[in-house]
C-alpha cells in the first residue's frame, strides 16, 4: 500500500520530467525557427500546439496511471 504511494509519486515526477524536456525542446526549436523566419510564426504556433498536445497526452497517460495507483 505504502509502496503504491511511493510508485505513484515517483512515476508522476518522472513522467512530468520527460514531458517538460519534450515541450521545452519543442518550444526552443519553434522559437528559433520563428526568430529566423518571422513570417511563418503563425503556422509554427499551430504545429507547435498540436505537437505539444501529443507530448502532454503521453505524460497525462502516465499521470492517470499514477493517480489510479495513489487512489486505490
Amino acid at each position: 500500500m505504502d509502496l503504491a504511494f511511493l510508485a505513484a509519486g515517483l512515476g508522476a515526477g518522472l513522467s512530468v520530467f520527460g514531458a517538460a524536456l519534450g515541450i521545452g525542446k519543442l518550444a526552443a526549436a519553434a522559437l528559433e525557427a520563428a526568430a529566423r523566419q518571422p513570417e511563418i510564426a503563425n503556422k509554427l504556433q499551430l504545429t507547435m500546439i498540436i505537437a505539444a498536445a501529443f507530448i502532454e497526452g503521453v505524460a497525462l497517460f502516465a499521470c492517470v496511471i499514477c493517480f489510479i495507483l495513489a487512489s486505490k
Binding site: E56, L60, V64
Partner: peptide, 13 residues
C-alpha cells in the same frame, strides 16, 4: 483514446 484521456486529465488535474 488519447483524445479521451487528454481532455479528461487536463480538466481533472
Amino acid at each position: 483514446f488519447a483524445l479521451t484521456i487528454r481532455l479528461f486529465a487536463n480538466m481533472t488535474a
